[in-house]
Measured scan of single mutants.
Amino acid sequence: MAEQVALSRTQVCGILREELFQGDAFHQSDTHIFIIMGASGDLAKKKIYPTIWWLFRDGLLPENTFIVGYARSRLTVADIRKQSEPFFKATPEEKLKLEDFFARNSYVAGQYDDAASYQRLNSHMNALHLGSQANRLFYLALPPTVYEAVTKNIHESCMSQIGWNRIIVEKPFGRDLQSSDRLSNHISSLFREDQIYRIDHYLGKEMVQNLMVLRFANRIFGPIWNRDNIACVILTFKEPFGTEGRGGYFDEFGIIRDVMQNHLLQMLCLVAMEKPASTNSDDVRDEKVKVLKCISEVQANNVVLGQYVGNPDGEGEATKGYLDDPTVPRGSTTATFAAVVLYVENERWDGVPFILRCGKALNERKAEVRLQFHDVAGDIFHQQCKRNELVIRVQPNEAVYTKMMTKKPGMFFNPEESELDLTYGNRYKNVKLPDAYERLILDVFCGSQMHFVRSDELREAWRIFTPLLHQIELEKPKPIPYIYGSRGPTEADELMKRVGFQYEGTYKWVNP
């Protein structure tokens, strides 16, 4: 592979701008107003304001973009700056750019259920340069409990009458099928589907988006991507930290609602779906819905739930269990780990287990898709061969690698495990991989909904998990304890083995 010439960040961002501006969906010269509902909250200060700053800094926003914060707290732009700027990672050389960014910011205080507050917000936006005809993007960085009041008031008082209007809704989209349907029906009564952007930030990850290209742009994968060759698929999300004093919020939802029903299920769809007619948003989402419709409700015998306990040999936070978090209700049975087996009941995947695993306070930070292939028929190497695996590593250190057998150097035919490896950090030294939120917010500006969740996708996802969630809430089974920093409950490994996964433990990928 030829040595790549190092590029400056300015040059890299210039390439990104060229890609972005050559499309006809990006209205570079139009006025846009980006409204952050819930501007005083954690999500706004840690993710949304920093993301908008990065896009502005790199010249990736339309030229005439204004940012308006809205929340109940009586704040000023200076207050917003004070709480969000520490997350910007701005350099001293960017000081003038930073001043320009905050000059485009404003803030309006108001209630979430008060019509007069929204009329005041609308008047404020109209007073901005060309504000009355601007395109408006409303980001709901809010708890779902206020979605209905907020969307109703936005629709009645704050819509642009000339430009387009788009609304970005953060997960969780309800707690179960019934609450999700209620919320979807409410929002759909106010906005068209092409105006609604239900954001799952995992769909903005580079390697998640790469799944489609790997599958449908490489001839070698087509013939082997089926039940005849693939023994099982494992989708993993692991965090090495616990709730760390923020367990009160987590306890309301648990690990299945927080990660599995959305992030992991979306990745499953991209692995299992048929080739779409095109890369058009609805063509892709149509195929994802077909996959979900082929999955039956989760069966309790295919589920393992766990909850982390303190590690007596650990240090600091590792010595504390979930129930030691003062914000967690006493005696909570909320799971911090889950392993679930699903089956896609169609011709391509009949009988292939899709194993979804996620948890907190585990032994490493990792998100990946792992396809394990069947054993080689007619073994001539005296059971020395391990199964081939194709691994798409989402985070950290984005990579695609194939675990395969090669001859060990020497005189004899002794096979050993090795890999074919594409590590993004080595291959793409001159490429700026956008943060997931950067990519998705740019998608909203461009009107691309491919990486957002459609209402029928959402409904099918909740259909699969709601009976299990209701059973857990009714019966309150005690989750299996696992030690902070471990791989999780051993019962999860036993479940995976029972459905056909072979864990060798003899080879570990190392970032080159």
Rank of each mutant, 00 (worst) to 15 (best):
R227S: 12
T51V: 10
V108S: 07
A231Q: 12
F253W: 02
D200P: 01
Q28R: 11
P172A: 02
S40Y: 03
D176W: 03
T65N: 01
S106W: 07
M207Q: 07
G59I: 00
I199D: 00
L211N: 00
R120Y: 15
E94W: 05
G59S: 08
F216D: 04
N64H: 12
R227D: 05
L121F: 08
I167D: 00
S179W: 02
A109K: 13
D30G: 10
Q133D: 12
G23Q: 15
L96M: 11
Y147R: 01
Y112C: 03
L211I: 13
K152N: 14
R182D: 13
E19F: 15
D113V: 08
V150S: 12
T236C: 07
G69D: 03
N229K: 00
L96I: 13
I15T: 14
N153K: 13
P86G: 07
I220W: 12
E99L: 07
E94G: 03
I230P: 03
G14N: 15
I224W: 04
D228I: 07
I220Q: 03
G163N: 10
M37D: 01
R198S: 00
H201T: 05
A103H: 15
N122V: 11
S106H: 12
C158E: 05
I52A: 10
H186F: 11
K171D: 02
Y112I: 02
P86L: 10
I187M: 12
E170N: 03
M207C: 05
L20R: 15
G110A: 08
T91K: 11
S184A: 11
F34T: 07
N135H: 12
P50H: 04
I67M: 07
N185C: 12
R246Y: 01
S123C: 15
G41E: 00
F216L: 03
T10Y: 15
Q209Y: 05
L190F: 08
M125L: 11
S157Y: 12
H129C: 13
F221K: 01
R182G: 13
L177V: 12
A149N: 14
C158D: 10
E170I: 02
D181K: 06
I224G: 07
D79W: 05
I199A: 02
I224H: 06
R219W: 09
P92L: 10
D24K: 11
G38H: 00
Q119M: 14
I234V: 14
G248C: 05
I33E: 06
T65P: 06
P240E: 10
A231K: 14
N105H: 14
Y107Q: 03
T236P: 02
T31M: 11
R192M: 11
H155F: 10
R104H: 14
L43T: 02
K46M: 04
N64W: 06
H155C: 11
I196K: 03
K82D: 10
F216Y: 05
I36M: 03
E239K: 02
F241K: 03
D79P: 01
Q28Y: 13
V146Y: 02
G131M: 09
H27F: 11
L137M: 12
K97Y: 06
F241A: 05
I168M: 09
I36P: 01
Y70G: 03
N185W: 09
K46T: 02
R57H: 05
F66C: 08
K152Y: 11
R198I: 04
Y118F: 14
Y118A: 07
I230W: 00
D24M: 09
I168F: 05
R120P: 09
A25R: 15
I33P: 01
I36Y: 03
T31Y: 11
L183A: 02
C13S: 15
F216E: 01
F173R: 01
K45L: 06
P172Y: 04
Y118E: 04
R166N: 05
F138Y: 12
E244A: 13
M37V: 09
A39C: 07
E170K: 01
R9G: 10
T145F: 10
H186C: 11
V77Q: 11
V233F: 04
L55T: 08
P223T: 10
F237D: 03
N122K: 13
A127N: 15
D181H: 06
D100W: 08
L190Y: 07
L203D: 02
N218L: 01
A115G: 14
F253G: 02
E206I: 07
L60F: 12
L190K: 12
E63G: 12
W225D: 01
K47V: 01
S123I: 15
S106E: 09
D228E: 14
R182A: 14
S184Y: 08
L61S: 00
Y139A: 06
T145D: 04
F34C: 09
F191N: 04
E19V: 09
R136H: 12
R81M: 15
N153I: 09
D228L: 08
Q11T: 15
R198L: 00
G163E: 06
G59A: 07
Y197V: 00
A71E: 02
E94D: 11
M37C: 13
N135V: 06
L20T: 15
F250A: 05
I67E: 03
M125G: 06
Q119I: 13
L60A: 06
R215S: 01
R74P: 15
L98M: 10
G222D: 15
E156C: 10
G38F: 02
P62G: 08
A39H: 01
L140K: 04
P50E: 00
W164S: 07
Y249R: 01
